[in-house]
Amino acid sequence: NQASVVANQLIPINTALALVMMRSEVVTPVGIPAEDIPRLVSMQVNRAVPLGTTLMPDMVKGYA
């Protein structure tokens, strides 16, 4: 199964993503693939992302 990017902490709106904020986990539904974690670093989220939430492409500015 494909691992997705999951929030490792609460990520406030407009926060630039850092490695420590993300982990990979096999979840349903599938979100952003875990292999894209390096690409996500320094991109901003466009909403608050609670701990344990799967990151979806529409949550990250400039990802989709």
Rank of each mutant, 00 (worst) to 15 (best):
L51W: 13
T54N: 02
A34V: 09
P57G: 07
N1Q: 15
L55Q: 00
P29K: 05
N8R: 12
E35G: 12
A48F: 10
N1E: 15
Q2P: 15
G31T: 02
G62A: 09
T28I: 08
A16D: 06
P33K: 07
V26C: 06
D58V: 08
R47A: 11
M21E: 03
M56H: 07
T54F: 01
L51A: 15
V20Y: 12
V30P: 15
T15N: 04
I37D: 02
A34N: 05
G52Q: 03
T15H: 08
S42D: 13
T54D: 02
V45D: 01
E25L: 07
P29S: 03
A34F: 06
V60H: 02
V30N: 14
I32F: 03
R39Q: 07
R23S: 07
V6T: 06
V26W: 10
D36E: 15
L40F: 01
L55P: 01
I13R: 15
V45F: 00
E35N: 09
R39E: 05
D36W: 07
I32L: 05
L40V: 05
S42R: 08
R39S: 09
A64T: 11
M21H: 13
P12F: 05
A64W: 05
N8F: 04
G52P: 02
V6R: 01
R47D: 06
D36A: 08
L55W: 00
Q9I: 13
D58F: 11
T54E: 02
R39V: 11
V27W: 03
V41E: 05
V6W: 00
Q9N: 08
V27Y: 02
V60A: 00
Q2M: 12
S4Q: 02
I11T: 01
Q44L: 14
R47F: 06
A3Q: 09
A18E: 14
M59N: 04
P57N: 06
L40P: 00
E35C: 07
M22C: 03
V45A: 04
M56K: 08
M21T: 03
Q44R: 11
V49L: 06
V30E: 15
A7K: 01
V49I: 15
A18F: 06
A16K: 10
G52T: 01
T54C: 05
R23A: 07
G52I: 03
R23Y: 06
V6Y: 01
M21C: 03
S24Y: 08
L40A: 00
I11P: 01
I11D: 01
R39G: 06
T15M: 09
E25M: 08
V27A: 06
V45M: 05
T15E: 07
L10K: 10
P57E: 08
V6L: 07
M59V: 07
G62K: 05
R47I: 15
N8T: 13
Q44D: 04
A18D: 12
E25D: 12
N14Y: 15
Q2K: 06
A7W: 00
S24C: 08
T53F: 09
V6D: 00
V41F: 04
R47T: 13
A16G: 07
M56T: 14
N1D: 15
A64Y: 06
A3E: 14
R39T: 09
Q2A: 13
A7C: 04
A64C: 08
A34M: 08
P57T: 05
L17E: 03
P29M: 04
P12S: 06
A3P: 09
R47N: 07
V20E: 14
N46L: 08
I37S: 04
T53W: 10
E25Y: 05
L10H: 15
P12H: 11
G31P: 01
G62D: 10
V49K: 00
Y63I: 04
T53E: 08
V27G: 03
S42I: 03
L10P: 14
M56W: 05
M59Y: 09
S42T: 13
E35W: 07
S24W: 10
A48D: 12
P33T: 06
L40G: 00
R23Q: 06
P12D: 09
D36S: 14
V27D: 03
I32A: 00
K61S: 12
P50K: 09
L51R: 15
V27H: 03
G31V: 02
P57Q: 09
T15C: 06
L19I: 14
S4I: 02
P38K: 13
A64R: 13
G31Y: 03
P57H: 12
S4F: 02
G31A: 02
I32N: 01
M59K: 00
S42F: 09
D58I: 07
N14P: 00
V26H: 10
V60R: 00
I13D: 11
S24P: 14
V5M: 01
P12E: 12
T53I: 10
Q9L: 11
T54W: 00
M56R: 06
V41H: 04
N14E: 09
V45P: 02
M43K: 07
V45K: 00
A18Q: 15
Q9D: 09
Q9F: 06
N14D: 12
I13M: 12
A3Y: 09
A48E: 11
M22K: 00
N14G: 10
D36H: 13
Q9R: 15
V45T: 13
M22N: 01
E25H: 07
L10E: 15
V49W: 03
G52M: 05
M21G: 03
D58Q: 10
R23L: 04
A48P: 08
A7Q: 02
T53H: 15
A16M: 12
E25K: 07
S4H: 01
S42Q: 10
Q9W: 09
P33R: 08
L51P: 15
S4A: 03
P38V: 11
I32T: 02
N46D: 10
V45E: 02
V27T: 13
V20I: 12
I11K: 01
L19R: 12
V6H: 02
T28A: 10
T15Q: 09
I37C: 05
L10D: 15
V41N: 04
K61L: 12
P50Y: 14
N46K: 10
P12W: 04
D36T: 07
M21F: 06
V27F: 03
M56Y: 07
A48H: 13
L17D: 03
S4N: 01
V5A: 09
T53Y: 12
N8C: 05
G31N: 01
A48K: 11
S24I: 09
L40T: 02
M56C: 13
K61A: 11
Q2V: 13
Q44H: 12
G52A: 11
V45L: 10
Q2C: 12
L10T: 08
V41R: 05
M21I: 03
A48Y: 14
L10F: 14
P50H: 11
P33V: 09
L10R: 10
L55M: 11
G62L: 10
P57K: 10
E25V: 07
M21Q: 05
I37A: 08
P50E: 15
N14I: 03
I32W: 02
V60Q: 02
V5S: 01
